[in-house]
Simulated assay, not measured.
Amino acid sequence: MRAVLQRVSSASCKVDGHITGEIAAGFVVLLGIEDADTEEDVQWLAQKIAGMRVFSDENGLMNKALADVGGRILLISQFTLFAQTRKGNRPSFIRAAKPDKAIPLYENMITSLNQLTGNATATGVFGADMKISLVNDGPVTIMIDTKNKE
């Protein structure tokens, strides 16, 4: 499972011109799920996301977590995070989980983040053509891969 966290001052997701999720300050999380991912990966990654201290404290240092600043999460499924680009110019997505595997893990991530943050996680629509708008704050962009836990 891979996540790209972007610290934002605001963000939204539209599908067919309708807003499906919108936040003020917090994280846009692009989430890629592969066939090898498990519920253990969901729990580990959700804890990492909720606890990531990349918001500025009184001294301008990245010391505060999402809860400390009242931030929220906009979670977007993104299978392209598992693009393989070694051969040719057309990426392969063979490692990305198929919807029957990925959707339950994506939904479990939403539930886990809701519980850990105490806020409803804003979302896109799994598998839809989404238009994401955001104001990247910093910019601060962090990549996390559950295969690199240790």
Results as ranks from 00 to 15, higher is better:
residue 60 G to P: 09
residue 43 Q to P: 00
residue 57 D to E: 07
residue 44 W to P: 06
residue 59 N to C: 13
residue 40 E to N: 00
residue 33 I to H: 07
residue 16 D to F: 00
residue 27 F to D: 00
residue 17 G to K: 10
residue 17 G to H: 02
residue 47 Q to H: 12
residue 18 H to R: 11
residue 40 E to W: 09
residue 38 T to M: 04
residue 24 A to R: 15
residue 29 V to C: 13
residue 60 G to S: 11
residue 53 R to I: 06
residue 22 E to T: 11
residue 29 V to P: 07
residue 13 C to V: 15
residue 34 E to H: 07
residue 24 A to C: 03
residue 52 M to L: 14
residue 13 C to L: 02
residue 23 I to N: 15
residue 44 W to F: 14
residue 47 Q to P: 02
residue 45 L to A: 08
residue 48 K to P: 06
residue 35 D to V: 00
residue 15 V to M: 00
residue 42 V to I: 05
residue 47 Q to M: 03
residue 27 F to S: 08
residue 30 L to H: 09
residue 11 A to Y: 08
residue 41 D to N: 12
residue 54 V to L: 13
residue 27 F to N: 03
residue 25 A to T: 15
residue 38 T to K: 04
residue 62 M to R: 15
residue 21 G to L: 02
residue 61 L to Y: 09
residue 40 E to T: 10
residue 40 E to L: 04
residue 57 D to V: 02
residue 34 E to S: 09
residue 27 F to Y: 13
residue 40 E to M: 03
residue 26 G to R: 11
residue 54 V to I: 14
residue 27 F to P: 05
residue 13 C to K: 02
residue 33 I to V: 13
residue 60 G to Q: 08
residue 54 V to E: 02
residue 25 A to W: 06
residue 36 A to G: 10
residue 13 C to Q: 01
residue 46 A to K: 07
residue 32 G to Q: 06
residue 45 L to R: 01
residue 55 F to T: 02
residue 16 D to K: 12
residue 15 V to K: 08
residue 12 S to N: 14
residue 16 D to I: 06
residue 41 D to C: 04
residue 15 V to P: 01
residue 34 E to I: 01
residue 52 M to R: 15
residue 40 E to Y: 04
residue 31 L to S: 01
residue 61 L to P: 03
residue 17 G to I: 01
residue 48 K to D: 01
residue 29 V to A: 04
residue 45 L to C: 09
